[in-house]
Nucleic acid binder design. Sequence first.
DNA 1: ATATAATATAGAGTGAACTCTATGTCAAGA
DNA 2: TCTTGACATAGAGTTCACTCTATATTATAT
Lengths: 123, 123
Amino acid sequence: MEYTIGEFSKLTNLGIHTLRYYEHEGLLTPERNSGNRRRYSEKDLVWVMFIKRLKDTGMPIKQIQHYAKLRAAGDSTLPDRMELLAAHKNTLCMQIRQLQENMEKLDSKIEFYRMEIERIAKK
Amino acid sequence: MEYTIGEFSKLTNLGIHTLRYYEHEGLLTPERNSGNRRRYSEKDLVWVMFIKRLKDTGMPIKQIQHYAKLRAAGDSTLPDRMELLAAHKNTLCMQIRQLQENMEKLDSKIEFYRMEIERIAKK
DNA sequence: ATATAATATAGAGTGAACTCTATGTCAAGA
DNA sequence: TCTTGACATAGAGTTCACTCTATATTATAT
């Protein structure tokens, strides 16, 4: 099954302009048909979903670009790609820990507010 | 104890330009001395630390600006501020959950790579 | 056959959050 | 006193990740 850019845009929730931008940045390389129109495949779909996940975890376009290059270079880059993902997992891990810590601090601030409000109320 | 902008910049790791930018955006309002130089106080320091925490949890400047306005308006805004923080805590909570989910998916991808590499190696 | 809608490219514009430049002022040390 | 360095403002420039515009081409429905 193949999709036009319009169909693919709806499918991925990504906006036609964004899809062309991603292609320009080398993240995506759909086939073209006779009339030079983009033809996105099922594979492109899976790949875009993965790109979106990487994005959701805060990976910048440049790094996804790097990953895409490795991917395009074939199976010999599997170890490199694994390493890249593992490294990213580590930063993600740290990021989560940091956020949890911040949330705790935020929580005690909220608690402090609760007490202050109480105190002022009964004065 | 008071600090010049240079001292305060080093103390907060924030860059002189950034401090002035924050002030321009209404996040910070240090006193001025006779010669119109900024004089940051201990209170400013505590407040900047809190701003940094909010930033670290992804709160945009506009929202911090709003919080700063409430803060400047005095104790009567304590409930509003608490509500704002509580709302932010919720988004933060969801964000963390999302990141954890993404990390799990990432992990299975890494695992898949490990297996692929293994498979290719012993072929 | 023609009008309309979708697509193509190249490049400009946007918004967030800085970051830097130009130009001017002022305080302190040699 | 003079010079150096930190500070002041206003506004321009940067980076990221889109997002939109202008213009041209192509496919499809009437």
